[in-house]
Design a protein around this nucleic acid. Structure first.
Ligand code: MN
Ligand code: MN
Ligand code: MN
Ligand code: MN
Lengths: 146, 146
DNA sequence: TTGGAAGTTTAGCATTTGCTAAATTATTTG
DNA sequence: CAAATAATTTAGCAAATGCTAAACTTCCAA
């Protein structure tokens, strides 16, 4: 009947936003880990589970388990008891993530919040910013003190 | 030794951002559910599991399970097989969430993205915006077409 | 008033993300 | 080189969030 159809269509439209958020959250962990592995490799030549655990504020065993999933996903390579390496897919994800993350952080700074707040808020916000919004932020930055 | 202390302190600083993100995500589900329950009550007099499931894009059983947790958390009241009511804590959370959500959405619009993008991106971003960033967004809105 | 549609709950399962404690391997130091 | 220390992995657990299928209750309409 007409009413049910209209109701269904409207709900379907609404639910799209929540589906996007759930998809963002599925990708989020991998993005943050891979970005941090790239940072560690650049800063000190290698990435180890302990450093990841320390920086993420989680237990070592949690990192180890996640490494297994990232390896299965083709983002990292790791021999038992050795340091972690990024695959080319991993490097691509890390660099895309860095660009996006840096842009969001700079945007928040330009908006007028403190360094600390920009650093903290951007860590969560970065994963929910669409290409269109990212572009709008870049445009804002270009106008205001980018 | 001095080096370990310095390294530990720096990692602790970094990990704070991730801890905030994890805390945000713990709160997120309750916030979205409660806000939607408030919307349904306002729009049609009552909130039922089926409508929540439709709008969230999840299965009915998922909503039912979440309702139990929200009841334990003191945010809703529900008799078996009846509609869902918000407690006063639930209403407070819903109204705070609405204000914040609406502000973020308006901010994105003012930044120049389309209605659709503002609607979708704000659904995720809203949960990671600190009080300070929210204030900065409000200030921006006051200057530009609020 | 009763039968069926619609809504709700339960049961049972899977995945992700976290934890602690114990076992194992690597590395450094005496 | 052997012992101590550090790092890593495994085992086993828990909570949150999702699913489908089956059972149960409510409500409307014939
Ligand atoms: Mn992040
Ligand atoms: Mn919301
Ligand atoms: Mn939301
Ligand atoms: Mn998020």
């Amino acid at each position: 009947m007409a009413f049910a159809t209209k109701k269904g269509a409207s709900a379907k439209l609404r639910s799209a936003a929540f589906k996007r958020v759930r998809a963002d959250h599925s990708a989020e962990l991998a993005e943050d880990y891979v970005e941090m592995i790239a940072d560690l490799i650049d800063e000190r030549g290698e990435a180890r589970c302990t450093d990841l655990a320390l920086r993420l504020g989680v237990a070592n065993a949690t990192v180890v388990k996640t490494m297994r999933r990232l390896q299965v996903a083709g983002l990292i390579n790791q021999e038992p008891y050795r340091a972690i390496f990024l695959t080319s897919d991993g490097w691509k994800m890390a660099e895309d993530g860095r660009r996006r993350h840096a842009l969001v952080e700079k945007f928040l700074l330009a908006l007028g919040v403190t360094r600390e707040t920009a650093r903290i808020d951007s860590e969560g916000i970065e994963h929910h910013v669409s290409a269109e919004t990212l572009k709008a932020m870049a445009k804002f930055l270009a106008r205001n003190g980018g």
